[in-house]
Computed example of a mutant assay.
Amino acid sequence: MSKKSRKYRKNNLTETPVKAKPPKETQHIPEFIFGRKNYLFMLIGIGVIALGFIFMAGGGSDDPNVFNPEIYSFRRIRLAPTLVLIGFGIEVYAILLNPDK
């Protein structure tokens, strides 16, 4: 085969240069900022925060003239805010966690 036949391809009437195909690019897989372990701890932290807010809910009265002492229960005053703070602590830990170790 001659050099000319390698570089050119014959059409019906004219010869046109053969364009070289660009090399196939490898598929780019996006890298996440955090690892799987980080995201797992983040989900746990969000769950603990949500549980704290659920514990804070309620305790009101249907009648505004009647006082309900349930609003000052241990669950709403001590437990729920503590759970929310623990959840935020878990979130900070999840962000600072090195997933490679």
Rank of each mutant, 00 (worst) to 15 (best):
V92A: 08
E31L: 11
P17F: 08
I44K: 10
G47R: 09
L85P: 05
E31H: 13
F34W: 14
F34V: 06
T82A: 04
P81I: 00
V48D: 08
K24S: 14
D63R: 03
Y72P: 05
T14L: 09
G59C: 01
R9D: 04
A80G: 02
G87S: 05
I46N: 04
A94M: 02
G59S: 00
K37S: 15
S61K: 10
A94P: 07
E31R: 14
E70Y: 00
L40D: 00
K7N: 08
H28V: 12
G47T: 12
A57Q: 15
V66M: 05
A20H: 10
V48S: 06
F34T: 09
F41Y: 13
F74L: 07
T16Q: 08
I29D: 13
Q27I: 14
A94Y: 03
F34D: 07
H28F: 15
G52E: 02
P64L: 07
G35T: 12
S73Y: 10
Y39V: 01
L85E: 12
M1G: 12
P69W: 02
F41Q: 09
V92R: 10
R75F: 02
K21L: 06
G45K: 07
A20T: 12
T14G: 09
L83W: 00
I77A: 03
K3R: 11
N98T: 10
R6V: 09
A80L: 00
N98D: 15
M42C: 01
N65Y: 08
L40N: 04
E70C: 00
F88H: 09
V84M: 05
E91V: 05
K10H: 09
F55G: 03
Y8V: 01
I71V: 06
S61L: 07
I44Y: 06
L96V: 11
A57F: 15
E70D: 05
E15P: 01
G89E: 11
F53G: 08
L85I: 15
A94W: 01
P23Q: 13
A50Q: 05
H28A: 12
G59R: 00
L97F: 14
S2W: 04
F88G: 08
